[in-house]
Design a binder for these strands. Structure first.
Length: 338
DNA sequence: AAAGCGGGGAC
DNA sequence: GTCCCAGCTTT
């Protein structure tokens, strides 16, 4: 970690990333404009304004409540990996009411865990969350660890989730670089419409440079910048008129240019993919009270080759178990793992 | 670095 | 139809 800098001066940034300054003023700003219309606000000032906005406009989400637990924060972060907040909130409430602690989830039946995950998507996350609960119980006595290395060693926890738990649950200084923060920094600090398809080392260094030096300040900035991205600095139709730092935004100053790397994005196919087939099989097994005979599973997808490939993959993933010959006709059946 | 992995709502 | 969502894991 680079040495801490005083919080009243701009943080060090990678040489190829400019935070702004007189040389960066776009051509459409008259040279005889007032000086303060051409000078950038300091990063500390920008952060303060975003945090002040956050204090006023933050959503009242249950995993932010004063009585939240570190485990509750971790559960929310795993659920929020690619699933929108509005869909996670009710699922999180039901989940935490049923399994409040890692020990509770560790002891649950995996079939019930997968049913409770319902349609949040990417059900491997539910499997990993239960493995994570068991690891927390076995390695850490049931307490969510508070170091990056220990968090990253947990199943389903990557750099984002580890940083989020450190910051939101423990109030520690940590880079929290999700899709919202990436977009805010891309616009505010870099001047691009959207970040690239994957997190880069330069981006991580930029996020680190913007992080206040103190734990509390860093945690507040992490939450505030993420919320700004979720509510104002949105991917489509950003509400710049409501933004507390529009005047300091390099993207706005540049005239809101279009996405520079749109040509590198590839939209995920859905119809007819293995993911669709897997989703249908999992939906069927979630709703069934017990094992489902193969001829019923066959009704989920007409293409036998693709269907069997997906079933085999689901079994390999641990999301489905195959049971032989339970019925009178010795037909194979499929079920959720116990 | 790229691919695979769910599902639904907004446009 | 396309795009996007508090990403992680494997190749």
């Amino acid at each position: 970690m680079p040495p801490a800098a005083p919080s009243d001066v701009p943080p060090a940034v990678p040489a190829n990333i400019r935070l702004g300054g007189p040389a960066d003023v776009p051509a459409d700003v008259p040279v005889d404009a007032p000086a303060d219309a051409r000078a950038d606000a300091s990063p500390a000032d920008v952060r303060e304004r975003v945090v002040a906005w956050f204090d006023e406009h933050r959503r009242d989400l249950p995993w932010r409540a004063p009585d939240r637990t570190a485990w509750g924060v971790l559960v929310s972060e795993v659920m929020l990996q690619q699933t929108p907040v509005v869909r996670v909130e009710p699922a999180w409430r039901a989940w935490m009411a049923r399994w409040p602690t890692p020990a509770d989830l560790a002891a649950a039946g995996t079939d019930e865990v997968l049913r409770a995950w319902d349609r949040l998507g990417y059900p491997r996350r539910a499997l990993r969350l239960q493995e994570c609960a068991r690891a927390v119980v076995e390695r850490h006595g049931g307490t969510v660890p508070a170091t990056a290395d220990e968090l990253l060693a947990l199943p389903g926890v990557g750099s984002y989730t580890a940083g989020a738990v450190l910051s939101f649950a423990y109030g520690r200084r940590a880079v929290v670089l999700d899709t919202n923060v990436r977009r805010v920094l891309a616009r505010l600090a870099v001047g691009e419409a959207l970040p690239g398809p994957a997190v880069t080392a330069v981006e991580t260094r930029l996020a680190e440079a913007w992080l206040p030096d103190d734990d509390l300040g860093a945690a507040r900035w992490a939450a505030a910048s993420m919320e700004l991205g979720a509510l104002v600095c949105t991917a489509r139709s950003p509400r710049c008129a409501a933004c507390p730092v529009e005047d300091a935004c390099r993207w706005r100053r540049a005239g809101s240019p279009p996405d520079a790397h749109a040509h590198r994005r590839r939209t995920q196919a859905w119809t007819g993919t293995d993911r669709q087939v897997r989703g249908r099989v999992m939906a069927l097994l979630r709703e069934a009270p017990g094992p489902v005979p193969a001829h019923v599973v066959a009704g989920t997808w007409p293409d036998r080759v693709q269907r069997e490939r997906c079933l085999a993959a689901l079994v390999a993933d641990g999301l489905v178990v195959e049971q032989a010959g339970a019925g009178e006709d010795d037909e194979v059946a499929y079920a959720l793992p116990r």
